[in-house]
């Protein structure tokens, strides 16, 4: 175990003829964040369910916090926290009662569940609502409470399955900050998301999965580099100048510029001075410029290139085939 918190080899899971997981390898060093990125139905949730012992794999093996998911499930569970796509909290209990209940079920020492509950409610900005029934909570409050519940026992390994799906931007930011502070404190996190900015911000490494397989793995920058380096984008005042501009920009472009949705887009030969050079060339040619920008590929581009479809193209409601949809 020592330095690897989550390790999976060749994980497989079949639902009838559907290969939800078709041989997945993962390796998450202690104190780092792995982002599992993939479209709906890619197998993200299935992977989390196997790693949290909720689902037995049909093949392969995995260890979390040093314990085997198949043979040491009971010990493994005391080392993990799980916050799922659902706000899995009891609506008929108060916020404080929910957290205390979870603390008791982790068998924390006497007195500790209550103290932990108060502490977490404070940290998640829920102190004022601590004694209100959860059914009066907003969606964002429920999610915060759900994440708090996952943290009750200070687990060294945290699984977050689409933790911010359906949250407003402010709550999202708040959750991100909380996750970051856990990681700073040494917690290992496996995060699934279909939001690329989320993976970009939180994850040290990203595994892109599609159709139950890891199709790319690396840091956010490495993945972006796989797709290609920086591009120059030029928007002209008049579309009638496009041909002239293409010819004129030849000295800075590594390939012939392409017109995409009214924007001239081209890979460049070198980064330094290219924008100034492009502006000078176009001015000299008497071509009016509306906008010039240097653009790095985003994870969206990575995703599109790797999977052939955009990340959020589908219905936006979790991993369809395994959760059966909604609530």
């Amino acid at each position: 175990m020592a330095d690897v918190a989550i390790e999976a080899e060749g994980l497989r899971k079949f639902y009838g003829r559907v290969r939800a997981l078709d041989g997945i390898d993962l390796r998450v060093p202690v104190g780092t964040v792995l982002g599992l990125l993939g479209p709906n139905g890619a197998g993200k949730t299935t992977a989390v369910r196997i790693l949290t012992t909720l689902l037995p794999p049909d093949g392969g093996s995995a260890r979390v916090a040093g314990f085997d998911v198949a043979t040491e499930a009971a010990k493994l569970r005391s080392k993990i926290g799980l916050a799922g796509q659902y706000a899995a909290v009891d609506e008929n209990l108060t916020g404080a009662e929910n957290l205390e209940m979870v603390g008791r079920l982790y068998h924390l020492p006497k007195g500790e569940p209550r103290a932990r509950a108060a502490e977490l409610l404070e940290r998640f900005d829920l102190s004022d609502a601590a004694d209100r029934l959860v059914r009066t909570y907003s969606g964002g409050m429920r999610r915060r409470l759900d994440l708090a519940a996952a943290l009750v026992a200070r687990p060294p390994v945290l699984f977050l399955d689409e933790p911010t799906t359906g949250l407003d931007p402010r709550s999202r930011l708040g959750l991100w900050e909380t996750i970051e502070s856990r990681v700073a404190g040494g917690t290992t996190v496996l995060l699934t998301t279909q939001y690329l900015d989320e993976a970009d911000r939180l994850a040290d490494r990203i595994s892109v999965i599609d159709h139950g397989r890891v199709i790319a793995e690396g840091s956010s920058d490495e993945l972006k580099d796989q797709v290609g380096g920086e591009h120059l984008e030029v928007t002209l005042e008049s579309e009638s100048d496009v041909e002239a501009a293409i010819v004129a920009l030849e000295p800075v472009a590594a390939e012939r510029p392409a017109l995409v949705e009214g924007v001239l887009r081209m890979p460049i030969k070198q980064r330094r001075g290219t924008i100034a050079e492009a502006v000078r060339i176009l001015n000299d040619a008497g071509i009016g410029i509306d906008d010039v920008a240097m653009r790095r590929p985003t994870l969206d581009d990575v995703f599109l290139t790797l999977t052939g479809h955009a990340a959020e193209s589908a219905d936006g409601d979790g991993d369809g085939e395994e959760s059966g949809g909604e609530r």
Partner: peptide, 11 residues
């Protein structure tokens, strides 16, 4: 509501 998942992930 996913509560069974939470309980099943607890020790």
């Amino acid at each position: 509501k996913g509560l069974v998942d939470r309980f099943r992930s607890l020790p």
